[in-house]
C-alpha cells in the first residue's frame, strides 16, 4: 500500500489584481495530479497568505501576481515566513514577470521556481515532485 502522504499546496493571489485565471487553472491541475490544494481567493495581503500557509500546514506556496508588484510581494512573503519560523515552506510563483525580475527573485532566494505565460501545467507538477522528493522519502 502506498502510504506516502499527499503534497499540500497553497495557491495564493496576493496584492490587488483580480486576474485569477492562471491561479485557478494551476490549482485545478495540481489537484488533478493528486495534490491537496487550498486556494486563498483574491486580494490577499502577504500577512494573510503566510497565515494561511502555516495554518494549512502546506509544503509549498504558489503565488500568482499579474499586477507588477512581484518585486515587493515575493520578498515580503519570504520575510514573513522566516519571521514565523516557516521558511521550510517553499515558494513558487507565476504571472507577468519580466525576465530580469525573475532572475533577481530566483537569485535572492525569494522564489524557488517561477513559471511564466505559456508554461504547461505538467512542468509545474514535475517541478513540485522533484522539489518534494527528499521530503517525502
Amino acid at each position: 500500500m502506498n502510504t506516502a502522504r499527499k503534497i499540500r499546496v497553497l495557491v495564493a493571489k496576493p496584492g490587488l489584481d483580480g486576474h485569477d485565471r492562471g491561479a485557478k487553472v494551476v490549482a485545478r491541475a495540481l489537484r488533478d495530479a493528486g495534490m491537496e490544494v487550498v486556494y486563498t481567493g483574491l486580494h490577499q495581503t502577504p500577512e494573510q497568505v503566510v497565515e494561511a500557509a502555516i495554518q494549512e500546514d502546506v509544503d509549498m506556496v504558489g503565488l500568482s501576481i499579474l499586477s507588477g508588484a512581484h518585486l515587493t510581494i515575493f520578498p515580503r512573503i519570504c520575510e514573513l515566513l522566516k519571521e514565523n519560523g516557516a521558511e521550510d515552506i517553499m515558494v513558487m510563483g507565476g504571472g507577468i514577470i519580466p525576465d530580469d525580475d525573475m532572475q533577481e527573485l530566483l537569485a535572492n532566494g525569494h522564489a524557488q521556481a517561477l513559471f511564466t505565460p505559456g508554461t504547461v501545467t505538467a512542468d509545474i507538477i514535475n517541478w513540485i515532485h522533484e522539489a518534494m522528493k527528499d521530503r517525502l522519502s
Binding site: G15, L16, S67, T72
Partner: peptide, 8 residues
Amino acid sequence: SFGEVGRV
C-alpha cells in the same frame, strides 16, 4: 497599495 503604485 504597497508595491502597486503606477504599475499597471
